[in-house]
Design a protein around this nucleic acid. Structure first.
Lengths: 142, 142
DNA sequence: CCGAAGAGCTTGAGTGCCTCAAGTACCGGG
DNA sequence: CCCGGTACTTGAGGCACTCAAGCTCTTCGG
């Protein structure tokens, strides 16, 4: 009725909705926004330049500037000029930032809680199905 | 390494991310924000009061006021005082609103595209798994 | 019938995310 | 040395969202 509409569509919507809400709650519980939590998480793998963060987070460079400014004000990241190329700023997570990041992960119990309801067999089934859903577009040949 | 971290966790994240992005693109292609598209979609089932919308969309009443104001300015919804209780405003979708809403649904090809990759058997498997994930908390007994 | 309590919506102030357009500082090649 | 391009920042502006106040209207007790 509503359009495309099988029950599966609805389930998918519900899942995404619940997931988003849970992530937002987890971030907020640690005093961050979802965007800030994402940025911080991206830094757990090591320093990144502003530009690289913009690419990874799929957003504008000036947006990264603002996010980093806020996080830096909170002492969660540092932003230092790269000696090799002084145009570049290297952003790193601080120990405090790492703590907060872990707090977010701990508070984000949605995946473990929910996936924990499945048996090992079900999990691998789900993984296979998701892989099929997520596979890159098999685009038409030239 | 990153934390909780199985491949399944990552797949779930990727799915949600792709889903969100697709919805946002679909809404934007129709000239709406995601929030506006949600509100419009909620109205396809019939008129709703402002308060009811706030409950359904899980947000503040004053937020609804603003969203409706914008949509009304675009001629996509109407807001008329309820004759039975003149405190209440009934919000309804207009024909133009319905058209835009359908445009969003048409542009939001993510679920049909992706779910369309599965066989009927796989879809019902997935549906079963999602039902398990989405089931309300089986809270502990007294 | 009146006045107080409360419901429903709006307004105003404030925050954050996000984008685009300009601007600044710096690299590298001619 | 100058010029084009790169990396980041700044400024302006839009939208989503929240909280506190305010307004209108209903309801209920006296």
């Amino acid at each position: 009725m509503t359009g495309a509409g099988s029950a599966l569509d609805q389930q998918l919507w519900d899942l995404v909705y619940a997931y988003d809400a849970a992530y937002d709650r987890a971030a907020r519980a640690a005093g961050l926004s979802a965007a800030q939590a994402c940025l911080l998480d991206a830094l757990t793998g090591g320093s990144r330049s502003m530009g690289r963060l913009a690419v990874e987070l799929l957003c504008d460079a000036s947006n990264v500037t603002q996010l980093v400014t806020r996080l830096e004000a909170g002492g969660l990241v540092t932003r230092v000029p790269d000696p090799d190329d002084r145009r570049v700023k290297q952003v790193s997570i601080t120990p405090a930032g790492r703590r907060v990041c872990r707090a977010v992960q701990r508070a984000f119990d949605f995946p473990s809680d929910r996936l924990g309801r499945l048996t090992g067999r079900e999990r691998s089934q789900l993984s296979g199905l998701l892989a099929k859903l997520l596979a890159p577009e098999a685009s038409s040949p030239s």
